[in-house]
């Protein structure tokens, strides 16, 4: 599943560690999701959406 995490993060000048801290996950998790190696669960996807104050479908895109 594609996502816009890297772009959204860059727009806010957040590092992966910054986002990881906000999501209360490891930086590896952010990296794995960002690079498309891991698709987050629905609860984590909602947390990501909340952090960016956006809808899930505005962050995660269909292949």
């Amino acid at each position: 599943m594609n996502n816009r995490l890297k772009v959204l993060r860059a727009e806010r000048s957040w590092s992966q560690a910054d986002l990881a801290e906000r999501l209360e996950v490891s930086r590896q998790s952010v990296n794995a999701i960002e690079t498309g190696r891991y698709d987050p669960s629905l609860p984590l996807a909602f947390r990501i959406a909340d952090v960016f104050d956006m809808a899930i479908e505005e962050i995660f895109l269909r292949d």
Partner: peptide
């Protein structure tokens, strides 16, 4: 483990 990626 609360981090789902590490759990995975």
């Amino acid at each position: 483990e609360r981090d789902e990626y590490l759990r995975h």
